[in-house]
Design a protein around this nucleic acid. Structure first.
Lengths: 256, 256
DNA sequence: CGGCCATTTGAACGCGCTCAAGCGCGGTGG
DNA sequence: CCACCGCGCTTGAGCGCGTTCAAATGGCCG
């Protein structure tokens, strides 16, 4: 499995997923939730679809390890990635009271996810209501904010802006998981998949990456490993106001 | 004010906003909430921005009357409408614990909105927790689903598909508010604004609408009033599976 | 009637697409 | 061990969709 290296890398990060997942929770609640997540953990291999659009599904999954794409597709086969989910993020394929997924849940790497039945969540809720729901709202709000940023560029931005934005967003999110990235990060996506995320053909993703590379903004010599050589330049092309973006798309450090 | 007619029309709908707003709530809770919404209601005129991206804001507004656009813009002045909010829907400009809006809240028509401070909501919550939050989750899930549908077409669809989709989505949502629309609805948007929603220039919106009109799919002779002459055809161009879309983007009739 | 704004139409450009061929690398089997 | 195979990346050629710029038309209000 070609993505194994990436998975291993993530799993040995200094800040383990569980820590982030239960971030801001008090001791007892954290212990309880961690145990629950472990009990319901499942592994899937890269390339598999955990859920397909229209399938029945549990209301949400927590991603413990690996990268997940939320995809929708047209009849002609074109695929659009609505969002990419990283470890410690939550996936809510269906509305709470409903059970039909509104998108495909696709494993970009080997992944570990925990599928929590609503009954279990309810018992957690009774035990420690504010923290669990606050955490979910917090993650959902960050997801909403980054989707909105992408919609803006999908509707109004150039290819260069979209690619620069996607790279910057993913770099920021990965850095929040592990701040030792040092302008370098592993991107377990083919150019085809970057295109599905940015709304571009794989051919044009290639051309755009090369242009950014030739312009000295990034380094893609080691495939799947991106080095950001000029963050300010990339941010400028992406039309990003860096501090604002960080505040909006990263789950906040402090709970209310 | 050129949009007055639209507002008046909405206000005389058989199903008043308040009914839908408190949909599924039991008698006492409904009374309490209706009173609270009234007390906090504010009016704004068409074209005004209630909140701008980056402003401090209350965590959410409920729209009692009129059409609202949630906009983001690039430095070059291009505007993208992330979502359009209709009466009985909720606007959540900021994450719960934060207070900075992630988009402009723009009045497309004269509107009435109720800005609920979090403290009031908390007291409601204590009084009738499940219903209020269930209602908000329900509305948020519908918003998420329709945004995802638009993202798919923004990234992968043609101009014709995007326009057909936008028209169909808005028709379905308005029909849910008032089922006597009979294939005819008031669309209080300029072609410029349709373009901001669909990710197209106003010029191309014009051409696309004319093509749909000439093709016998819609009738736009009465400006701002759209008549759908061939819903199946429009749905087909938009790449929609009608029943599924309805189930996803309309707030569900029954509460859990 | 005059002014303003939205819509409509034309003309031309260019961005990003499709189609197609070539390259590079890792994995597999003879 | 090397040849082959397959997948993903790269590059070229050409096209077409949607853009911008510009001007004309139409409708509404003062």
């Amino acid at each position: 499995m070609s993505h194994t290296t990436s998975v291993m890398k993530l799993r040995t990060h200094p800040t383990a997923p569980f820590d982030l997942l239960t971030h801001g929770l008090s001791g007892p609640a954290r212990t309880r939730i961690t145990a629950l997540l472990h009990r319901n953990a499942r592994r899937y291999t890269a390339g598999s679809d955990i859920v397909r659009e229209g399938d029945n599904t549990v209301p949400f999954f927590w991603v413990l390890d690996g990268w997940v794409a939320l995809n929708k597709s047209l009849e002609d086969g074109h695929v659009q990635t609505i969002d990419i989910i990283l470890p410690s993020d939550v996936i809510t394929p269906a509305a709470w009271e409903r059970s039909i997924s509104t998108f495909d849940v696709h494993a970009l790497t080997d992944i570990t996810v925990s599928a929590l039945p609503l009954t279990d969540l309810d018992s957690l809720e009774l035990a420690d209501p504010p923290h669990v729901w606050a955490s979910i709202r917090n993650l959902s709000a960050a997801a909403r904010a980054r989707i909105a940023e992408r919609v803006l560029r999908l509707g109004q931005g150039s290819a260069e802006m979209r690619v620069a934005y996607v790279l910057t967003e993913l770099y920021l999110r990965i850095s929040a998981l592990d701040d030792d990235q040092n302008m370098n990060f592993h991107l377990p996506l083919t150019q085809q998949q970057i295109g599905e995320f940015a709304g571009l053909s794989s051919v044009h993703v290639c051309r755009t990456l090369r242009r950014l590379s030739r312009g000295g903004l990034i380094d893609t010599n080691d495939h799947l490993n991106i080095t950001i050589k000029d963050l300010d330049g990339l941010v400028s092309i992406a039309g990003i106001e860096l501090n604002r973006l960080k505040a909006e798309i990263l789950p906040s450090e402090t709970q209310a």
